[in-house]
Amino acid sequence: MQFCDECGSMMKTEGDKWVCGSCGHETIRDEAKEAAMVTTQGQEQSEIIDVSDAEDTGLPTTNAQCPSCDNDRAYWYMQQIRSADESETRFFVCTECEHKWREDDH
Results as ranks from 00 to 15, higher is better:
M1D: 11
M1F: 07
Q2H: 13
F3L: 11
C4K: 05
C4D: 06
D5E: 12
C7T: 04
C7D: 12
C7S: 09
G8R: 05
G8M: 05
S9T: 07
M10F: 05
M10H: 07
T13E: 15
T13M: 15
T13V: 09
T13K: 14
E14H: 02
G15N: 04
G15I: 01
G15T: 00
D16P: 12
D16Q: 12
D16W: 06
K17A: 05
W18R: 09
V19E: 05
C20L: 03
C20N: 04
G21L: 10
G21R: 12
C23Q: 03
C23M: 01
G24F: 01
G24H: 01
H25W: 05
E26V: 00
E26G: 05
T27P: 08
I28K: 15
I28V: 15
R29L: 01
E31I: 01
A32I: 02
K33G: 05
K33Y: 04
K33E: 12
E34F: 00
E34A: 02
A35C: 00
M37K: 11
M37P: 06
V38N: 12
T39K: 10
Q41V: 04
Q41N: 10
G42H: 08
G42P: 08
E44F: 09
E44L: 14
E44Y: 09
E44N: 14
Q45C: 04
S46W: 13
E47I: 06
E47L: 12
I48T: 07
I48G: 08
I49N: 12
I49R: 13
I49D: 14
I49V: 10
V51K: 15
V51S: 13
V51Y: 15
S52L: 04
D53G: 06
A54I: 02
A54N: 08
E55V: 03
E55G: 10
D56P: 04
T57K: 15
T57I: 06
G58H: 08
G58D: 02
G58S: 04
L59R: 10
P60G: 04
N63K: 15
A64G: 05
Q65S: 11
Q65C: 09
C66N: 01
C66P: 00
C66K: 00
C66L: 03
P67R: 00
P67V: 00
S68Y: 01
S68C: 06
S68F: 02
S68E: 08
N71I: 03
D72C: 09
R73L: 13
A74F: 02
Y75T: 07
Y75R: 10
Y77E: 07
Y77S: 09
M78N: 15
Q80E: 11
I81C: 11
I81H: 11
R82K: 14
R82G: 14
R82W: 13
R82P: 09
S83C: 15
S83T: 13
A84P: 10
A84F: 08
D85Q: 12
S87C: 07
S87K: 15
R90Q: 05
F91Q: 03
F92D: 01
V93H: 07
V93I: 10
C97P: 00
E98S: 10
E98V: 00
H99E: 07
K100I: 02
W101C: 00
E103A: 06
D104V: 04
D105L: 12
H106A: 12
